[in-house]
């Protein structure tokens, strides 16, 4: 038996779907690009290596084929449409969105974009809530239920991890039956940060490295949600997931 077939059979016997690496010749532009929202005011560039680290983990852990680097896009930029997943990080208040920023973000979110607001401080999350309420005025901000598919798109997760554990839940805005905006209070991207020498930039508390691992898992789940939506809510998956949750 060839090695590839052996590995495939091994994956099947483990009850896992597994495949060899892809040819990856279509170029970076065809890969999934993670975007960073460069809003005005505050500190939009406060987590410079987090998205690169998440991309590396995706390559290491999943079949998703992300671009190695991330994309910086202003709220009013057409570049935003090169990605369907953007992260807004920060710890300070931000400048209010202008009309063009609101118009562009509304079109991006309405077309299928998902914005993850990840705050290192409540003042930033509060400011983003204020602005997103202007972008999507008819959509309320609600608590993300534990039963949501986001908690099982790849990893089975039961907590809301990050660099901190200030709030054990996320909030969201849903449009057209899918997540449009996620609000995290626990500085998820802070847990992903490394410095130029590969050293974790921030300590994670109170859970230490286990908590950091859970933060990455949530990042993987967010990307999986972006690429296959409610796939794990399909009937075929439910008995397996329920059994493993027990």
């Amino acid at each position: 038996m060839k090695r590839r077939e052996f590995l495939g059979a091994a994956a099947l016997s483990l009850g896992l779907a597994a495949a060899p690496g892809s040819a990856r010749a279509f170029g970076n532009k065809n890969r999934l690009v993670l975007a960073r929202l460069m809003y005005r005011g505050g500190d939009p560039g406060s987590r410079p290596s987090a998205l690169r680290r998440l991309a590396a983990e995706l390559i290491h852990r999943t079949s998703v084929d992300p671009a190695g680097d991330y994309l910086d896009a202003a709220p009013d930029s057409p570049r935003l449409f090169q990605s369907a997943l953007a992260f807004a990080t920060g710890s300070m208040d931000i400048q209010p969105f202008n009309d063009e920023e609101i118009r562009n973000l509304r079109r991006w979110l309405g077309g299928g974009g998902l914005l993850v607001v990840d705050g290192a401080a409540d003042v930033f999350v509060g400011a983003m809530k204020r602005e997103m309420a202007r972008v999507l005025p008819d959509i309320p901000i609600t608590e993300l239920k534990r039963e949501h598919v986001l908690y099982k798109t790849f990893y089975l997760i039961s907590t809301q991890p990050g660099r901190t554990l200030r709030k054990p839940w996320m909030e969201c805005m849903e449009a057209d039956g899918r997540l449009a905006v996620l609000f995290s209070h626990n500085d998820m991207t802070g847990a992903w940060e490394r410095d130029e020498f590969g050293v974790w930039r921030y300590d994670v508390s109170p859970g230490g490295q286990a908590q950091r691992e859970m933060a990455f898992r949530m990042g993987v789940n967010v990307v999986m949600y972006t690429t296959c939506l409610h796939y794990k809510d399909d009937q075929v998956h439910l008995p397996f997931i329920l059994r493993r949750r027990r």
Binding site: S63, F154, Y231
Partner: peptide, 26 residues
């Protein structure tokens, strides 16, 4: 719609215990 998506290939990390992931057999 019946869909099956390959979420992890043989090149990927297999160290995570099965009970912590939602993947099923194809």
């Amino acid at each position: 719609l019946i869909s099956f998506y390959i979420l992890r290939t043989t090149d990927d990390d297999f160290s995570i215990p099965e009970r912590e992931i939602s993947l099923i057999q194809f």
